[in-house]
């Protein structure tokens, strides 16, 4: 509940403050967001399966976003930034789908 509230509050804050993404963050933020989405869905799934642990959630959330951004950074340094970003997005997309499927199975038994 608090997480959901936080999400809504964050969107509202973003709409109100109209933030501009700083230039140094611009290449990494999209990937970090996708990684965070994955971590969030993973958290919901764990909660529904009854194995949710706040510490795990916080750590996985932070490490996922940081690692995703790091991979993109490394890719940019190696000159394969776009390909590596695509790879990360694909992997995270697969994980998001599998998490969503697990949540759906828990909630609707389907």
């Amino acid at each position: 509940m608090i997480a959901l509230l936080g999400l809504v509050l964050g969107v509202a804050l973003g709409l109100m403050l109209q933030p501009d993404v700083p230039l140094w963050l611009q290449p990494y933020l999209p990937i970090a967001i996708v990684a965070a989405l994955d971590a969030m869905l993973g958290g919901v799934r764990a909660r529904l399966e009854g194995v949710f642990d706040e510490k795990v959630f916080v750590v996985s959330f932070l490490s996922n976003t940081v690692i995703a951004a790091l991979i993109v950074f490394l890719g940019d340094q190696l000159g394969v930034g776009s390909q590596l970003s695509t790879g990360v997005v694909v992997v995270l997309g697969i994980r998001i789908f599998s998490n969503a499927a697990a949540i759906r199975r828990k909630l609707f038994r389907a």
Binding site: L9, V11, A32, M40, F61
Partner: peptide, 13 residues
């Protein structure tokens, strides 16, 4: 967790 989600929503927007 709520704080992280707040951050996520903010970043998405």
């Amino acid at each position: 967790g709520g704080l992280l989600c707040l951050l996520l929503g903010f970043a998405v927007v």
